[in-house]
């Protein structure tokens, strides 16, 4: 898979996060993953189909997910990942993937996305649809979001 495939996702995060109240959004480490994505605690899966097929796994620690949800809800305290916080995190990944799909479309690739599935647990791992996938960390106000991008 072409490393350029990550750019629409980076652009999407850079575009969306400031709108949700984050000041400083930067790109962190980039690497190649093989076989499994080890969850940090909260992983959101979004599927892609049509001219690009694959899966994106957004990986967060629980504390990060709660901090992001709190900021998205205008600073409302979030002490547990309750329904409202779960909905906010799902919606974030939906917006980012949707925004990336729009970038792909501008480059002539039609992409359709599935609703997000939020996966929560103590210890689990995931396999995205391709054996190798790209891992990019995005850091928004020192909160780390890891994107695992597997495109067939």
């Amino acid at each position: 898979m072409d490393v350029k495939m990550i750019n629409p996702f980076i652009d999407a995060i850079m575009n969306i996060m400031p709108q949700l109240g984050f000041q400083n959004v930067v790109k962190g480490k980039l690497s190649v993953g093989e076989q499994f994505v080890e969850s940090k605690g909260i992983t959101v899966l979004v599927g892609l189909t049509d001219q690009l097929r694959g899966n994106i796994a957004y990986n967060f620690t629980e504390v990060t997910a709660m901090s992001i949800a709190s900021k998205m809800m205008m600073g409302m305290p979030v002490a547990t990942l309750d329904d409202l916080a779960q909905s906010a995190i799902s919606e974030l990944t939906n917006m980012v993937t949707g925004n990336a799909a729009t970038h792909f479309e501008k480059d002539g690739l039609r992409v359709d996305i599935s609703p997000p599935s939020l996966v929560v647990g103590e210890k689990f791992k995931l396999k995205v649809s391709s054996a190798k996938f790209l891992v990019v960390e995005m850091i928004a106000d020192s909160l780390v979001i890891e994107l695992n991008i597997g495109i067939e």
Partner: peptide, 18 residues
């Protein structure tokens, strides 16, 4: 349409679609 499969491995994992 369908997206490709992803696999989750682990016990007592909650799958939530708000």
């Amino acid at each position: 349409r369908l997206t490709p499969p992803s696999i989750i491995i682990g016990e007592s994992i909650a799958i939530i679609n708000p």
